[in-house]
Design a protein around this nucleic acid. Structure first.
Ligand SMILES: [Zn+2]
Length: 506
DNA sequence: GATGCCGGGCT
DNA sequence: AGCCCGGCATC
């Protein structure tokens, strides 16, 4: 989220590699040379894989598209503002009084790298002109901080605001992604979820692209409920890009004990999804800044490069099956644990993906071999697992060790026959666990959504407060200066760290 | 109410 | 990255 500025045109060059679809860029939409903001809706690639053209969909409400070459685009990975000259009248965005404000270029002096911009600040009648360094001028609206947002009047924002007011219903399941549900006040979470009108009413989509956008949207939704590094996301990406191909191993991930279950997510199911992704049918008001940033994709490929060998281990309680391919582990899970699919063809068609498709994913995990940091917890998990029970029937308790804190959690399961059986519609106890990274970087998150009201006593999402007294308690508010820095910053204390559990972590 | 600290904003 | 703080969960 913080990396949003990756979107700002001119804010440093970023390679326009990977999936740049959805990236916000600017391009000359008319003959006047003025740049208009839009998003990359499609990329044309030559046979050799090089990108030769970009189809840009403009924000201007017409939904019109045009194709451009890379050299014509302005934005991350393409030209920066210093590469060109802004025309008078060009709409730009600058920061004025700590807030982003739009204005029109009066004149741009390439020699001095200065731009005179005419703006109409709030509470000012009439416009004023300011001179800004080119560096401080953007042609793409940046994402504003929540704090700065409230007074904005531009209609995109208004739409945004009223939008965020919309209460729950379909959105709910998406919002529950965080470990702690935050008030809408911190807008970000939801902004994200409305990720793009990528899949909007536009009808002339070539099929391939359609697939991509859906994939993108799915990715985003997933990322809301799962840790961004969740293998399941990666799995989906893989699947998405190469439908039908099951044998492709999802990228090598160094983390993720189990695949995570995307939240029960009714919203993922057809009806609501299109609404959610289409910006709720708002004509073409662009949910500014919501386009996928590079960063949204970044982690995924990054992970890929750890080229260690991976195997896939069944995580079904009591099962120690290990295979070398996704396909085989999925097959194993399906055949040995899940049983035959009901009412569904056996096809693994992604487009057909609905709530309980790919259930296999949730019962295996990738394990890196040879990685120096072989997940210590894996073995623990095995040990913690009840020794009995083979197939089909699960114990009614689940014992989970959370790698990060090395705590064991026993979750009583309401007599369900399958582990983590997630009720789809009238669900009562949904368990969602984006798993902690095994390398301990990410916070373990686990969610319970319990419509019945009874929450599980101690949510593992949050480190149960240890008995250890921390700086604050020890030194008291009056000796704040003695606190460790982390405490001063209201972060997890580093001085009085937990106890043995944490000690073991090393 | 106090404490711990996550998530996120600002510089 | 350092600093700060809102707000939530837990004690
Ligand atoms: Zn401390």
């Amino acid at each position: 989220m913080r990396q949003r500025n990756g979107l700002i045109a001119g804010a440093g060059k970023r390679l326009a590699k990977r999936s740049i679809i959805g990236t916000r860029v600017c391009a000359p939409s008319g003959d006047d040379g003025k740049l208009c903001a839009g998003i990359i809706a499609a990329v044309k690639t030559a046979a050799d894989g090089s990108e030769t053209g970009y189809s840009i969909r403009f924000d201007d409400g017409t939904g019109g598209r045009r194709e451009y070459r890379a050299t014509e685009l302005v934005g991350p990975g393409f030209q920066t503002l210093s590469d060109l000259r802004l025309m008078a009248g060009q709409r730009v965005y600058i920061t004025f009084n700590g807030r982003e404000i739009s204005g029109d270029v009066v004149v741009h002096r390439p020699d001095t790298e200065e731009v005179r911009v005419s703006i109409m600040p709030h509470g000012h009648e009439g416009s004023i002109e300011v001179i800004k360094k080119l560096d401080d001028v953007r042609v793409l609206e940046s994402r504003k901080s929540a704090r700065l947002m409230d007074q904005d009047t531009d209609f995109a924002r208004l739409a945004d605001m009223s939008d965020r007011k919309r209460s729950s219903s379909s959105q709910n399941a998406v919002e529950i992604s965080g470990s702690r549900k935050r008030r809408p006040s911190s807008s970000q979470d939801q902004d994200e979820s409305r990720e793009e009108e990528m899949k909007d009413e536009d009808d002339d989509n070539e099929p391939k692209e359609e697939e991509m956008t859906e994939c993108t949207a799915a990715l985003v939704l997933m990322s809301l409920s799962c840790s961004p590094h969740s293998p399941s996301i990666q799995g989906r990406i893989t699947r998405c890009q190469q439908p039908e191909s099951l044998s492709t191993s999802p990228s090598t991930s160094s983390e993720g004990a189990f695949s995570c279950r995307s939240s029960p997510s009714p919203p993922l199911s057809e009806s609501s999804s299109s609404a959610a992704w289409s910006g709720r049918g708002l004509p073409s008001v662009v949910d500014e800044g919501i386009g996928l940033t590079d960063d949204d994709f970044e982690d995924v490929p990054k992970r890929k490069k750890s080229d260690c060998r991976t195997v896939f281990q069944c995580t079904w309680p009591g099962c120690v099956m290990i295979t070398t391919t996704v396909a085989s582990i999925e097959l194993h899970v399906r055949q040995n644990h899940l049983g035959p699919r009901l009412d569904k063809s056996l096809s693994d068609d992604f487009t057909n993906d609905s709530i309980d498709d790919h259930e296999e994913e949730f019962y295996y995990t990738e394990v890196e071999l040879g990685a120096a940091s072989s997940p210590p917890t894996l073995s623990h998990r095995d040990m913690a697992r009840p020794p009995h029970e083979g197939k089909g029937c699960a114990p009614n308790k689940m014992i989970i060790i959370y790698p990060e804190y090395q705590k064991t959690l026993i979750i009583p399961r309401p007599g369900s026959a399958c582990p983590m059986n997630i009720p789809s519609t009238s669900g009562n106890t949904a368990v969602n666990w984006p798993f902690a990274s095994l390398n301990g970087q990410k916070q373990i998150k686990m969610m319970y959504q319990n419509l019945g009201g009874t929450r599980f006593p101690s949510s593992p999402m949050r480190k149960a407060r240890g008995e250890t007294k921390k700086c604050r308690k020890v030194y008291g508010m009056e000796h704040r200066e003695k606190w460790c820095t982390q405490c001063k910053w209201k972060k997890a204390c580093t001085r009085f760290v937990g106890s043995l559990e944490n000690a073991q972590l090393a």
